[in-house]
Amino acid sequence: MSLENELKSLIIAELKLVDIKAEDINDDQPLFGEGLGLDSLDAVELVVLLQRHYKIETKDLEQSKEVFASVRSLANYIRAQQDRK
């Protein structure tokens, strides 16, 4: 399974998204606001998810905006962080 699909499944499961399947989420679809419709509560869950599943933090605010833009940007960030380790 690609990292993008793994992330989609994790997001659906841990954020308790209903009536939505992994294949319904486009890799480049915005996660917050108009896209998938996530909000600041979901942001908390996403940060916890990244830390628990991938041991990754996003401390820089400017960086966070880019990282949390879409599933693809999240996956790219995880790969980059894992390569650094």
Partner: peptide
């Protein structure tokens, strides 16, 4: 009033 109400930063701080 920042990105996602500062929740990313706050959660990271608590995780740390």
């Amino acid at each position: 009033g920042g990105f996602l109400g500062g929740m990313v930063e706050a959660t990271n701080a608590l995780n740390a």
